[in-house]
Write a protein that binds this DNA or RNA. Structure first.
Lengths: 264, 264
DNA sequence: TGCAACGGCA
DNA sequence: TGCCGTTGCA
């Protein structure tokens, strides 16, 4: 059987809120390693990969590898019924057709359990190559979200250009154009505000803002986001979940990079 | 060229938010005097006149008079991308077809520039006669906004009647009628709450609440509003922008003044 | 479905 | 007083 206890149950709710708009149904893979999910979004353009390591849970038991197919929307609905400070326990039998979510309020005054039916879902598990990226930008997640949202009022795509000093987000649309430049900088007092650029060589790639805005739904999970890019490869937008794992989004670049690269 | 720097960039955003619902497209007139706009609303019923003096800017340069035609909606969209504490710089070439808005975050960590295409807009510049008004009421802008909003749930028009002691706002509709009377009073400790009436002779005029409610969008610009009236002349609803200028709205009275004047 | 105003909390 | 979370509207 599978049983996992998470004191910060709210984490799983945030995870579901950050995935359910992109993916309808998906398999959660439970193993002794942890609790993971990998899925393409409904339009088969972007890929989500989420992983919570077993040692991040307060209790974790998984006798046999288990693949639980769920409707992310319905699972999110159930997790909305959890109190903000509730402790979450998930349980599933090896041959069962459902998963149970138990919520315990901090003082045990209220205990709820919700059972969600499982579904059979075909899933192609894609191998994600472990790439050395040309450039990685670590920046405040809220700032990244804000930039993507702002630029979507002007255009549909964004050119992300990384140089060693900073990262520039640019777009063009009917009403005009926009550039937002964020400079690399550290602040010892406020590490959550730092912008760190780790660059082997400059990269500039164009992406559909629509997807980046969906990825930014994960902002509540971490106050920093890591954006990794290499020429002609999908960008990785990763939010680390402290002491537990991460959620990462992959999105292939648009082709017109070079054309736009010279724009101002 | 034209270049103007405003530390409180948020002021311009508030100005646009207060105009964009009334006017689609308009010309901003830049001159050594300052940055101004005058336009009729789309239904040609009311008039907006906004003026920011050059000395209110932190830097102001305008080599030649320039008339920049913009879509207020698009300009407002761009200004929404500005951070609340950002410093704003506007730039336009004399013969250019665009204006650039640059936003600098307080610590220069983030610099954005947005380019907005200019448009050719016919504008009849109306002369606004410098009238001595029969009565001027200065009152808290939030209170004026609240009264107009409240009265519009009852009726479509408001009779504003000024006597030396106070100002009465009255309306009538299908479900009943309403009067709100605000008394003149000063409070040395809280000047922003004072109601000052400067009256040569009593005035009572009727206006469409719909427009007053639009004017009240300027409430965030100032905590006081000045309402000036003379018999049979358009009312002026003016919000002062500290150390910089003002935005004023003009609206002609309805004709049925005398009929309603006796109403209670 | 996404944004804006409002109210509650820190 | 400022920020966040929620709710209501477009």
């Amino acid at each position: 059987m599978f049983e996992a206890r998470l004191t910060q149950g709210v984490l799983l709710r945030k995870l579901l809120d950050s995935m359910k708009d992109l993916v309808q149904d998906a398999n959660f893979d439970c193993s002794s390693t942890g609790f993971a999910l990998q899925a393409m979004d409904s339009s088969h353009v972007s890929l989500i990969h989420m992983q919570l390591r077993s040692d991040g849970f307060d209790h974790f038991r998984c006798d046999r590898n288990l693949s639980m197919g769920v409707s992310l929307n319905n699972m999110a609905k159930i997790l909305k019924c959890m109190g903000n400070d509730d402790v979450l326990t998930m349980k599933a039998e090896d041959q069962g057709d459902s998963v149970t979510f138990m919520f315990e309020s901090a003082n045990q005054e209220r205990i709820s359990d919700f059972e969600l039916k499982l579904m059979d879902i075909d899933s192609e598990q894609l191998g994600i190559p472990d790439t050395d990226y040309s450039a990685t930008v670590k920046m405040p997640s809220a700032e990244f979200a804000r930039i993507c949202k702002d630029l979507s009022t002007i255009g549909d795509t964004v050119l992300i250009a990384v140089t060693k000093d900073g990262v520039r987000f640019s777009t063009t649309g009917d009403i005009g154009s926009a550039n937002v430049t964020v400079r690399s900088h550290s602040n010892v007092d406020k590490p959550e505000e730092q912008v760190v650029i780790d660059m082997q060589e400059p990269v500039a790639l164009t992406f559909a803002l629509r997807y980046l805005n969906s990825f930014a739904k994960a902002t509540p999970l971490s106050n920093q986001v890591m954006i990794s890019m290499s020429k002609e490869l999908p960008v990785v937008v990763q939010y680390r979940i402290e002491d537990m794992g991460h959620i990462s989004y992959y999105l292939a670049p648009k082709i017109e990079d070079e054309e736009m690269e010279g724009d101002e």
